[in-house]
Nucleic acid binder design. Structure first.
Lengths: 255, 255
DNA sequence: GAGTGGTCTAGACCACCTA
DNA sequence: AGGTGGTCTAGACCACTCC
């Protein structure tokens, strides 16, 4: 006689499915039996099976698609962004670092401009850029980046109004051949250092919707500050990345 | 007449609670009404309230404690590790970078050694260290780091056996005043560059247990490679960090 | 229209915490 | 003992997909 499994039924079911997946009986892309079928197989209520599926989905093993079924998630290469995304050596290609990385992975990258406006900065922006929070002291630009048909990044950039005023940065489309950072250089700010603060968290409901995030996928939240040749911060960008499709990489000297 | 809210009741409830939290009516540490009370207030079944609480918990706003209640999570400063964790300037303190960071945040840091053994390296380790996978070519060391009473990091280090053999690295306690990296320097490897590959994901059930992770908290997974003065990789460390208590920071030159 | 996942109900019992 | 969250049941209807 075997020892009875005293754990909750939902965990037991999740475990059996997990094993079937790692054993290859359920290959990436394969469809699981429907929740109603599983409930009957295991002799439980459908809600219990749903709880099991949620456990798997939270650890990123499966994705539920409404009206279609639950599928084993295919492992995919991460698009890695890192310190070299601003390197001058990528200049000559005329492509933004995101598009270069997409090309490497054989994906089609594109982006949309959502919002360009002069605003009052949030506190965490003002603090890092040494600006006041009591006036419209920054220009805010918002973009979304896509790889193939997946939205993978939300990007918000804040630029001190004293720098942005009267430049191409106010337009949706940046005319400068080197993009936004080309404009900064024309204004006398060359990026000498970057300061990236990185966190990970679950997405807000808003982000979940905008990035079409499957449940159980976290986001990587990067607060990037650009520092010029004099150590002055002149631009701050917040990247929110889908953690299942992207990552970061820093290959840097030890100082 | 106002437009009826057509979203699911669970989302509506989650939203109202979210607003109460951000408005400060429910301060950090405060206890929410019990699920049964909320169900009655909103005129729904308890399961619906539970779904709402799950949504909040997944975005890290609240924590449910079995038998006690659901509490607004206190915002806590992140312990940020980054490129300067290996900087020689921290040498003189005689503290490891993790302990320094803990001290800054006013927390008590400590660590445990779980495992020190010669092993066959996993493929991703062998590839980055240019080692074979068909022999016990590396020394593997595992640690857990604590801040106050919370386990915040699992750390696994792999060192080529040719470097580790006969050194202090085989012992649980490293005698060298500069720690593990002091030993590497004695062996002729000074860290000139680091290469950190960063991802985020939900924890495995195993990690969830070992780090006592509340549900809905992701982990940050860092694969760190140390490169010496000749560009040779001589050590690889994998950090798994609780994303709710820790983050990363890279302040680096643009090359 | 048939089948799928998403949401919801109105109960029940268990495991844990506090008093 | 009484209250809390955790799990579970056996239904129901809705929203979406595919044929």
């Amino acid at each position: 006689m075997t020892t009875p499994d005293r754990r909750p039924a939902s965990e037991r079911i999740a475990d059996e499915l997990r094993q079937a997946i790692s054993a290859g009986q359920l290959a990436p892309g394969a469809k699981l039996p429907s929740e109603r079928e599983l409930a009957e197989q295991y002799g439980t209520a459908r809600n219990t099976v749903r709880q099991a599926v949620r456990l798997l989905s939270e650890s990123g093993l499966v994705v539920a698609e409404h009206g279609r079924g639950v599928f084993v998630r295919a492992a995919s290469n991460l698009i890695r962004l890192g310190n070299d995304r601003y390197s001058p050596k990528h200049r000559e290609t005329g492509l933004s670092p995101f598009l270069i990385e997409c090309a490497k992975q054989g994906k089609a990258g594109r982006f949309e401009v959502l919002f360009v406006e002069r605003v009052v900065p949030p506190e965490y922006v003002a603090r890092r850029l040494n600006l006041p929070t009591d006036s419209e002291s920054v220009l805010q630009r918002e973009n979304v980046f896509w790889a193939d048909s997946d939205p993978v990044q939300g990007v918000t950039t804040w630029i001190p109004w004293t720098i942005a005023e009267g430049t191409d940065l106010l337009n949706d489309v940046i005319g400068h051949p080197y993009g936004i950072h080309g404009v900064f250089e024309d204004q006398g700010h060359t990026m000498a250092r970057l300061d990236d603060e990185i966190s990970a968290r679950m997405p807000t409901p808003d982000e979940r919707e905008r990035m079409q995030l499957p449940p159980g996928v976290p986001v990587i939240d990067v607060l990037h500050t650009s520092l010029d040749q004099d150590g002055v911060p002149y631009e701050l960008t917040r990247f929110v990345l889908r953690a299942d499709l992207s990552g970061l990489r820093y290959n840097v000297p030890v100082e």
